[in-house]
Design a protein around this nucleic acid. Sequence first.
DNA 1: AGGTGTATGTCGCAT
DNA 2: ATGCGACGTACACCT
Lengths: 219, 219
Amino acid sequence: MRVVIARCSVNYEGRLSAHLPSAVRLIMVKADGCVAIHADGGAYKPLNWMNAPNRLIEEPHEWRVTNTKGDTLRITMEELLSDSSWEFGVDPGLQKDGVEAHLQELLAADPTRIEDGLTLVRREHSTDIGPVDLLCRDPAGVAVVIEVKRRGEIDGVEQLTRYLARMERDPTLRPLRGIFVAQSIKPQAKVLAQSRDIACVEVDYDSLRGIESPQQALF
Amino acid sequence: MRVVIARCSVNYEGRLSAHLPSAVRLIMVKADGCVAIHADGGAYKPLNWMNAPNRLIEEPHEWRVTNTKGDTLRITMEELLSDSSWEFGVDPGLQKDGVEAHLQELLAADPTRIEDGLTLVRREHSTDIGPVDLLCRDPAGVAVVIEVKRRGEIDGVEQLTRYLARMERDPTLRPLRGIFVAQSIKPQAKVLAQSRDIACVEVDYDSLRGIESPQQALF
DNA sequence: AGGTGTATGTCGCAT
DNA sequence: ATGCGACGTACACCT
């Protein structure tokens, strides 16, 4: 990991053209070669960057970073304030818990949390336009296509609609209906879902997890 | 701008739970208070972060960062390797060229670049589900709804479809049709568009810009 | 504050 | 490689 503090100006040519007027900034060069230019504010996103793999040509007053796609990042170095490097070693990486996959897992384990009488047919049921989160069947034998989201927004309704339209073509699956499941569903998404005869169900992750292992709720 | 290099482990509790085992990392604290923890690889995205505004409570062996939503970032400092700060001053900010807005602007100036005979009715025509990029009329008097994207993907077709369905309700606008315009359109998006009777047009940004001010092409 | 759309999105996984 | 969906998406813009 190399960190350079310098007054610099920057030009980027790639998907778009971008220019950074002269100012003091932090330039981070990671072990994989990626370069990021940070201002002293504005969340974690750099002003400019070039991901690995790339080639860095370093001259006293100009750095030129290019990748295979033809994107170029030109950093004009006007005043070098600091230049340090460290060895980090391999990072063990981030461990996550509580993302959509876990929600889906919990609901697959007990679909009645979505609606009484549902039984799971298949998780990640694949169609030719992508995998359906949960495919269930209700007591009447109707196939129920379920899209699970952490947050229920309009895109999720579109996605479920596409799956339903696609699966309608398969006579062995008819009749079928859809349920949109999320921890919370925005009003617009509810309206869109209703207009397409898609039911909406809001579920609580903590309570689902509580059902799975009640003693964990004590912590 | 403060940069700390330290062996540390990290816990985040917020939308999800995340844990980082002990390793050497770079901790960036910007003037606005935001905190980012970087490994020595993996593009510009930090492993963990906390955006401004937040509160940072700094103790010798633990930093605790919290925001108003109740998210917490706990950094356990195991070995401090470096701790430096710099004054950057205000950053003049990034100047961009070539984003969707510019493409839309150029096409609004001359809709015949999309299709012969089109005339502009309104740019950013607002509907109750969002603004339509370009609303035009063709020589036959048909309203033409145009969605402009840098890259034409399936989402853009969905978006245009929503607008069309919405505007179909307004009898004063009928008949109407849609055109999906982008610098390049993916095959899947073309198929989806075709199945909905939406035309696809690919345009070249450089040539559009050339038409607008031919002498600029010389530079 | 909340909704919608854009992004050099990034990232991960499956084909 | 490309397609596709998730993301603590972030971010600007508008109501």
